[in-house]
Nucleic acid binder design. Structure first.
Lengths: 233, 233
DNA sequence: AATGAGAATATGCATGCACATAATATCGTG
DNA sequence: CACGATATTATGTGCATGCATATTCTCATT
């Protein structure tokens, strides 16, 4: 039955996937070792390893040295979320992008952000407030705290041609970050901006980025009514 | 300066990352070929390849055969979002999980879902409504349409011991899916469930899964007030 | 029976080599 | 000079091998 040899690692991955999906191997089962599979498929162990590593990355199998490889019991739903640059998101919808800087202040960090954005009170922070438009209609409202200790040259930038976000993406490398999504009511101010009721539910994305232990920027993005974040997996 | 040899692929990745972050190589630049780097680091080309592949996966460099490897210009913010099983999410917070099946009906698909969940009207659909509790407090409200043509045995399951979701995850393999996040007001019914005002903003996650072209299930999960979805990158 | 040292084993990683594949560069021919 | 065949080149992949490392298993010692 397994007469033909499978020698490309993608082919092997597909075959393994088939066996998992068709319950040849049941969830929780331990599957044959790399060496055995390599012999069965007529390929090198390295090749089987590549396939198994790929399956492990997507969470379909769990691997532990010596313990072997098992079919995951509750394969987690993993989705890779690509956070677009706001300009590209708007233009991707076929709209004209524009933006307007509402405020630009040196401020201290409000207390409720201390946990998410650990800068000492003494640090110099630049607060910027930007509205992003799609076809001249407000699309997203951005409130950002940027750590000038980490990015001194940020202070001198005029954000008429480039947005704070784009400047940071291109000039302030980060090594780690944190993304949070939640839901709020518009409230007085955003209701006026979006020409909606104060009770209108809005979608919020908060992002904090770090370079090593150094906090770079914290941004809250509150999207207009009806916004949906979507991804495929 | 580069006296010490780097021989593990993670070390090499870190060194390459450093050069990218510290602008030794600028965005858009072409970087030395695998063979050159291998010689410089005193390791095998395979090892450099592994490091570069990893960087390419995370989007920091783009690679094309013959053309070489370039530092990405706008490194995309990519985050992998792990959607947990609701039971594990609740138990991970140190709470006791429980659930209650409110409704179980054969229904036709409401019109507004036709785009997201392409089953013909004739298909048999099972609608289930479940409340998930954390320490006996409502945590999430789930409305699900399941395609019985795709998963016939789903009809016979009693969901007292296992949730519809867990059963499906374990018994109905999927090959693709779609995730959407947005924001709604609680409305009359959910306000009563969560003992909150009708205007309370709630976080919604919708998921559709497919096996090939065959739609499996569509679920809308409306979380309780204050819920935040969080991920690191 | 409890415990701890060491053997066994499955995966993880590095290497050197060969060949495949895609894209580009070059050069000869008309 | 235009154009297409061909060489060149950088990445992609497969293989055989050896060693590293994490776990588990076994068995002897107490």
């Amino acid at each position: 039955m397994k007469a033909q040899e499978l020698n490309s690692w993608t082919q092997i991955r597909e075959e393994l996937l088939r066996r998992i999906n068709e319950r040849v191997w049941h969830p929780g089962d331990i599957i044959p070792g790399e060496a055995d599979l390599a012999e069965e498929f007529g390929c090198a162990r390295t090749t089987v390893n590549r396939a198994l590593r790929d399956l492990a990355e997507s969470g379909l199998v769990t691997r532990r040295r010596k313990a072997g490889t098992r079919v995951a019991i509750n394969p987690p739903h993993k989705a890779t979320l690509t956070i677009p640059i706001i300009r590209e998101e708007v233009e991707g919808r076929g709209s004209i992008y524009s933006q307007s800087l509402l405020k630009r202040d040196k401020q201290t960090l409000p207390p409720h952000l201390h946990a998410a954005f650990p800068v000492s009170a003494a640090d110099r922070l630049l607060y910027t407030e930007t509205v992003h438009f799609a076809d001249d209609r407000p699309f997203m409202f951005e409130e950002r705290y940027t750590n000038l200790e980490a990015v001194p040259s940020f202070e001198a930038i005029a954000f008429d041609l480039i947005t704070p976000n784009e400047w940071l993406v291109q000039n302030a490398p980060y090594t780690a970050g944190d993304l949070t999504f939640y839901s709020v009511n518009a409230g007085q101010r955003l209701a006026r901006l979006y020409e909606a009721l104060e009770e209108t539910p809005l979608f919020v994305m908060e992002r904090t980025t770090f370079n090593g232990d150094l906090p770079i920027t914290h941004v809250r993005m509150t999207y207009g009514p009806g916004y949906r974040l979507r991804t495929r997996f």
